[in-house]
Structures are given as C-alpha cells and as structure tokens.
Design a protein around this nucleic acid. Structure first.
Length: 307
DNA sequence: AAGACGAAAGTGGTTGA
DNA sequence: TCAACAACTTTCGTCTT
C-alpha cells in the first residue's frame, strides 16, 4: 500500500505498471486491477475533527458510532446489551431479572429469524472469499448488497449458500470492472465452476441486472501481470487485440480466450517465450483454445507488422 | 523431454422452431 | 420443450525443437 498526496495524479500502477486502475468512491482508494495493489490518497481523516480533554467533554461531543457497512448483517447499526456484571450492586432482584430477560431477547431478536441467520453466515463467507481473492473493499460491499437482494427475492432458499455468495462476488467483480475468473471464485469456495455459474445466471436473470462484459483489455493486464511480463508485452498484446477486433475476430469468441491468445502471441513476438501451457494455466482456459484463437489471429492479421 | 499441434469426442449453454 | 448449433474442454497420438 502506498500513500500519495491529494494533488498527485496517478495513471499507472507503481507496482506493475498497468494502466488499469480502479477508483473506489467510497473509500477514496485507487487499486490496480491487474495486481490488486492499493494506493491511498492522503485525504479526509475518518476520525472526529475535535479534541476533548476530559471525559465529560468526550461524552458531550461523541457522535453516532461507526460508519454503516453492508458487510454486517445489521449493517453495524444495532446495539448490544453487555453481559458484563457492571453496576449490578444497586439493583433489586426484580430489576436484575428484568435485565437478564432483556439481554436474552436482545440477542435473540438480532439473529433469530432465518433470513438474518442466513445473512450472517453468508456475509462471513463473502468476506472470506474476498480476502482470499484480494478483492477491493468497494467490490465486496457491492457483493453484500447483491446478496441481500438475492435473499430478499428468495433465491437462496433451497440452494447452496456458498454458491450464492460466490456468485454475488463474481457478479460484483463484473459490475465494478475488476477481473476475477469464474474458476478462481469457484475455487475460493470449494465449489465447481458449473455450480457457481448456475447461481450467477440465476441472480442476473431474476434481479434483471445488466452485466457489462469485462473489457477484454483488462484480462490482458491481469494475465501479463500474473505471468511476470512487462509493460511492453501488455502494449503489444493490446495492439494485437485491437486489430483482431477490427477484422471481426472477436465476435462470438470468449473474451478470455482472446486475451490469453493475444498475451501468448505478444510474449512470443517479444521473445519472452511463455508456453501455451503457462498462459493457459493463468487464464484458466485450455491450450487448445489459445491455439485456435492465435491461429486465427495469425491468419487474419499479419504478424510481420509487429516484428 | 518438453512443447506444440490437431483430430475427435464430449460438455453445457443458447437459440429458434 | 427439444433439436441444432457454436464455443470450449478433454484426451490422446504425433511431430518439432
């Protein structure tokens, strides 16, 4: 993580050099789509702007608690009655009993109904997926919101909670323009691609969401980065991709296969000699797909331009 | 021996009647 | 609802470096 001054403009990731950066309006963070590197502009301090020198003043000036987050089942808003035995000395027996009842029901009402219980479990699942995949905060908030919607529409009932959680994370990534592959998300939950894919389609259909396809170029950034290749490969791969698009090679083809093929070609042309196997591994497609795509590219756009 | 190639069969999703 | 279809995967034998 790096801190930058507010007025400093930043166009490339200082870590991997990728130009694909994501700005999170909520936290003000900029993160790199390729490698997940986070850049924090030095700006608003989230703490109180006043100072208090004694306890009384502190109470006087305290505000309304932690910021709201969608990542907790009660959005971090509800209160809890402490179980600590503080100030009990002055209470009568009846008062003590009443207090203990209050505590009991306080706790029960918070996670008692099935939706709340489900949400509690799902959100912890969601957080764990996001942390294994190094997914930015903005995206996991989005995923939480999506999961709530799915739950409200009774999409989770009878289906696997983990599958749904994974699906909403994958969906949130797409909506936020963060590149994560379906097999990766599935792996983070020990589910199959098929299961998560099914949940994903269901959510998209029922909530009638528009899911903008991830820009093929973002996949390139990610693959180049994961293969430890440099910016020149990214630039060339993007150029190849652009030409492929111009001759109509992209229509009907999966964007991931196209990006993988362009990355492979660029690495070969620039003598980095990555194998089809290596690229296939990163892009989670088969070597055959990469072969088919790059053969087409060779046929339709002469590679002699690049040499 | 590793990598690349390509044929053939299989899988799961989409589309249109 | 079902068959046709395209994209992609899996598997495997063969060729090339």
């Amino acid at each position: 993580m790096r801190k930058i001054a507010m007025d400093e403009t930043i166009s490339r990731c200082p870590e991997c050099g990728s130009v694909n950066l994501l700005f999170d309006k909520r936290s003000g963070e900029i993160s790199c789509v390729g490698c997940g590197y986070v850049i924090v502009p030095v700006m608003a301090d989230a703490g109180p702007e006043w100072r208090a020198f004694d306890g009384e003043k502190e109470d006087d000036r305290s505000r309304s608690g932690a910021p709201i987050t969608m990542k907790m089942h009660d959005k971090g808003l509800s209160t809890k009655i402490s179980w600590r035995r503080r100030g009990r000395g002055e209470m009568t027996k009846a008062q003590l009993e009443k207090l203990s009842n209050l505590k009991k029901w306080d706790r029960r009402t918070q996670v008692a109904n099935s939706n709340e219980r489900n949400l509690t479990r799902a959100l912890s699942e969601l957080n764990s997926i996001c942390s294994t995949l190094a997914i930015p905060d903005a995206v996991s908030e989005t995923a939480s919101v999506l999961y709530r919607k799915a739950l409200k529409n009774k999409l989770v009932r009878g289906r696997s909670l983990r599958g749904m959680a994974a699906a909403t994370v994958y969906l949130a990534c797409k909506q936020c323009g963060v590149v994560r592959l379906l097999p990766e998300v599935a792996r983070a939950t020990n589910m199959t691609k098929k299961e998560v894919g099914r949940c994903y389609r269901l959510v998209v259909e029922v909530l009638s969401l528009r899911t903008p396809a991830i820009d093929t170029r973002l996949y390139v950034s990610r693959f180049v980065n994961n293969l430890n290749l440099k910016g020149d490969v990214e630039t060339l791969a993007l150029e190849i991709l652009e030409n492929a698009k111009a001759v109509g090679l992209t229509s009907g083809r999966g964007p991931i296969g196209m990006a993988a093929a362009a990355t492979y070609l660029a690495s070969i042309l620039l003598n980095y000699r990555k194998t089809q196997h290596e690229v296939a591994e990163i892009a989670k497609v088969t070597e055959v797909t990469i072969r088919n795509r790059y053969k087409e590219m060779l046929e339709r756009i002469g590679m002699d331009v690049y040499i």
